[in-house]
Design a binder for these strands. Sequence first.
DNA 1: CCGATCCATGTGACCGTTCACAATCCTGGC
DNA 2: GCCAGGATTGTGAACGGTCACATGGATCGG
Lengths: 363, 363
Amino acid sequence: MHVTGHTRAGASAPPDTGQRRAASIRDVARVAGVSYQTVSRVINDHPSVRPETRDRVHAAIAELGFRRSATAVALASGQVRAVTVLTSNTTLYGYAATLQGVEEEARAAGFSVRVGVLDNDTDSGIDRAVAAAVDGGGGLLVIGYDRIGAAALDRIPLDVPCAVAAENPFGSRPPRRPAVWTDDHIAAREATAHLLGLGHATVHYVAIPSSSPGSRRPTPRAAGWQEALRDAGVPRPKPCGKGWDSRAGYEAGVKLAKDPAVTAVLCGNDDLALGVLRALHEAGRSVPGDVSVIGFDDAPPSAYLTPSLSSVRMDFTGLGRAAFALLRQLVDPGSGETPPPVARPELVLRESSGPPGDRPSGN
Amino acid sequence: MHVTGHTRAGASAPPDTGQRRAASIRDVARVAGVSYQTVSRVINDHPSVRPETRDRVHAAIAELGFRRSATAVALASGQVRAVTVLTSNTTLYGYAATLQGVEEEARAAGFSVRVGVLDNDTDSGIDRAVAAAVDGGGGLLVIGYDRIGAAALDRIPLDVPCAVAAENPFGSRPPRRPAVWTDDHIAAREATAHLLGLGHATVHYVAIPSSSPGSRRPTPRAAGWQEALRDAGVPRPKPCGKGWDSRAGYEAGVKLAKDPAVTAVLCGNDDLALGVLRALHEAGRSVPGDVSVIGFDDAPPSAYLTPSLSSVRMDFTGLGRAAFALLRQLVDPGSGETPPPVARPELVLRESSGPPGDRPSGN
DNA sequence: CCGATCCATGTGACCGTTCACAATCCTGGC
DNA sequence: GCCAGGATTGTGAACGGTCACATGGATCGG
């Protein structure tokens, strides 16, 4: 017998308290000596209940340990008070932070948050996840930064309320759904312009995958980068990179490192930048001395890398909050809260970027 | 007017298809010319329905675009088929990966996954989150790696089914709930022993916060580290560190870097290790030449750090899967699936660790 | 002192499904 | 040809709330 893995699971179940059915409002009503409707009024803070009656009901509630069944409320009222966040990955910083923002705002509004992971790149996998999410009822929130998210979006029936946190839909067909985004496009342009301003002949780009199927449409980040190059009238190298993670960044970096003309690299996210940094280091090219690197997203650890990574800070949490607010307006327009503000992307300069050829004095 | 933030929200709501109430099984029954109960049988794959009838019902379902209401099912059947994952943070790698594992397993079992973030360290904040989770119905899955998770655990009524993914409860009161864990304790001991075996006089430890309130009980990781030191009969320095993130690691690292006797550092997670690496670098101490650093968790980017980080790989996804399976058994014992295996922690050696004083030849 | 109102409470129906049981049809054995 | 019994199908009553309306009493202006 070979190693099959290793789980320790201590089980010490509670002494099984009989599992009696939970108390309903009718039980409470009986104990309090009122009708079930009065109980309903009390738990809904309806004004016209005599204080004395209210107290009696509250006492009964406490005595029986009554908890209102969210399921029953949903069925009777016809509203589900839940959002399902569809995402392709909870592990990447941007996605996780967006999810956290949604949760914050949702809980404040009394909504529960469900998560559906689009872990399977096949159509049927996406379909299954979407179906599960739709069946759950309530609204959907799609994190559509990537291809899988965008594909899922197309599979959601139009009568299901749904909002999107996505890339800037810049230049493409307008989304069929309410959407929030921040201006990565402009941010990428600014970051690129910054590098050019420092004196770099041009800026290379390690791309995150496009969210459109054939990957023909560039992401807003790629577009912003290109725009800056064009505006400056400098050579426009081909973007590279095929993936989201450090490994993809590393592979792209290996190629870039071989070209001595490369002195500045913008990356589609910080994980990619990390891989690029690594590849440059292995090739013996110093950062920022030989090559400047700027990332995107400003994940918390980036500030502590060596060299610390210049990056474009994105307010994913705010984006998540705004996305929820948008969906909320869709679901009940009465709750006219204005979406919370999303911070504009901000270029955070650290050690990994600087003027070209700026080698430390000791060299 | 100053910058208040920046949101672009394009709203292009669908042409509002009348929002007619969704079809129910009674509607389907009418169209198919059968009773609602027959429809119920069809959607539940009950054997005794004539094939012809079944086809007719299926046709009606397709025609009306019928979708079974999960809410109504939950109410009528009394079972909620949902898990709520309570976690303090979705952004840290270990938590996010655990969540993802839960989701995988849950979706396979037809459960939906809810997320509750314990974002507020106050008792009332925790209480609110727990109450929201409990009210939602279904089981609870607490990610109890930290103090907040552990505190939440104590506030869940005993009649709510609940399982835990937590630290090895090693040496403390057994958990009141079914729990899964991996042997970080042993893994920490092995990592420490490895460093000692390399010739280091002792190993310092940058701790993750304890999950017990007064932080008096060491985490399994800390305990394993101490044990290895004791077994080897070497000096046992005080653990340092007060936090989970790179910043905390950096602060601890600054202190450690001042002490020339420090040649080996074990860190409670990779983020901490990243901060330590940074601090050592700033202090001019090379890694692994002057100091060896080993992290914990083996987050994906760690392999691409410079120097690449030795770390203890943890199977968080597997842990999440197993935790769900455990909860499932609690909720309906009939579904006797054995929990999926969890991979044992594994020490992954990379550049950041080595024998003491092993400076590159060029120096 | 009476009807109009408002306040406090109760009653019945319903949300969309499942469960328990009854009813009907059909088949086969004797 | 009759009856047991399985296969099919239907009916009524939950599940735990909300909603719309009805009821009874108190308040109040004229």
